[in-house]
């Protein structure tokens, strides 16, 4: 098979590929695509308490499935995102949120990029100030010696 055919086949495969659904079981999804998208977005911000580094949308754990179901039930009941997050944090604390809120305990965490920028900027400024001045241009004698060396 020619290389062109392989590339074409790959392109066709890519074009035909469906998006990877986080939830394997279509029965879990809400019938309304807009509401389902909201549920998936919200579930993506909630930590699976079993695997801990996955969202409940990505996790295969039993508890994550229950929580996905709860998120969808609350959305179908017409609750807002913040109401659902409040429901979750009432049970599992801020730990359940993959994006922690800004409060005294997380202040250092949220400030860390700015602190790093300040330290880096300070170091760059200090090293610039310490940079030695460029050497003075060559005088006439040095110029002629240079020419001599370059063109023997």
């Amino acid at each position: 098979m020619t290389r062109r055919a392989v590339v074409a086949a790959l392109a066709l495969l890519l074009a035909l590929a469906t998006p990877a659904w986080a939830i394997g079981d279509p029965a879990e999804r809400l019938p309304d695509p807009a509401l389902e998208a909201r549920a998936a977005e919200l579930g993506g911000q909630l930590r699976c308490l079993v695997c801990q580094n996955e969202s409940i949308e990505d996790s295969g754990a039993d508890l994550a499935r229950d929580l996905r179901h709860i998120v969808r039930a609350h959305i179908a009941a017409g609750e807002t995102d913040s109401q659902i997050i409040a429901w979750m944090t009432a049970r599992y604390g801020d730990f359940v949120r993959l994006r922690p809120p800004f409060n005294p305990t997380t202040a250092l965490l949220w400030a860390s990029p700015f602190v790093a920028l300040l330290i880096g900027g300070g170091a760059a400024y200090a090293s610039r100030r310490r940079a030695v001045a460029p050497p003075p241009p060559l005088d006439a004698a040095e110029q002629s010696r240079l020419r001599e060396l370059l063109n023997p």
Binding site: L49, V50, L63, D66, L67, I70, R91, Y92, G93
Partner: peptide
Amino acid sequence: AIDFGVTG
């Protein structure tokens, strides 16, 4: 269990 905040 979820209402109690049980994770397992």
